[in-house]
Design a protein around this nucleic acid. Structure first.
Lengths: 129, 129
DNA sequence: AACTAAGTTAACGTTAACGTCAACTAGGAG
DNA sequence: CTCCTAGTTGACGTTAACGTTAACTTAGTT
């Protein structure tokens, strides 16, 4: 085994330009887990798995989702549904999220058009040089 | 003149499924103005102009923007820049917003693909009926 | 040994975006 | 006149998502 590299909390924080407090907070509310804490110093260590999770969290935030919402979406990625009922529930959730996202994309495209229109309005009113 | 229709605060609130408090709050922080308040009863009245503004605010919120950010974008719509410097500033702001929006659209499309992938993973693991 | 750097927990502080409640007014319905 | 509805202005309460500070431990210098 290639002895997977692990990160300290401040390494991870620097990586994503956030504070250590933020990472601890995400763990506090159960969105991250620090496996294998040093048994003596109690220091947290993170692997690539947690790094990926953190990346997903931050992407979600940039898109305007709340942490609870993001948590559900991550659970979608990581869930291993038992039974047809559970699978159906998850697929339904995915579908509703997909609709929400597509709606959001459409609204953003409209906003983009609006801004472009106004921008051009100002550009055309500029003095020709 | 066609005597433009005006709305009461609760009419407007019902229209967008928000509370009256929210509308007063938006006025409080200067994102809405209630022109022509009844000089005796002090009741707010709104015209289509304010209705459109409110619509823009709520769209922005759904897209994950903060109220201050939305305020700047609305000012973009309503500004009447004097002088070349001011125009350049506004066009630069529009450009930066456009880039931000396009980035957000890309991220959302990636998120959409991700969710689709996971959804299909579950669908393919379902028992054929 | 003394100091510094990086980490820990616990607890209180902060900001945005409203919710809630109290005390008041003005306009009708009966 | 009395009651009800809809509105008003404060003012305090609430939640999410951290920031900040204190008091402590451990590891690595000097």
């Amino acid at each position: 085994m290639p002895e997977e590299k692990v990160f300290t909390i401040s390494e991870l924080a620097a990586m994503f330009d956030i504070s250590s407090r933020t990472i601890r907070y995400y763990e506090e509310i159960g969105m991250l887990t620090s496996e294998n804490r040093d048994s003596l110093t109690k220091q947290r260590t993170y692997t690539n798995r947690e790094r990926r999770r953190l990346k997903m969290i931050l992407r979600g935030k940039k898109l305007g989702f709340g942490l609870q919402e993001i948590r559900e979406m991550i659970e979608l990625y990581e869930s291993n549904p038992e039974g047809e009922a559970e699978k159906s529930r998850i697929i339904a959730f995915a579908d509703s999220k997909l609709r929400e996202i597509e709606e959001q994309i459409m609204q953003l495209q409209m906003l983009r058009e609006d801004i472009l229109t106004y921008k051009e309005k100002y550009e055309n009113s500029r003095v020709k040089t």
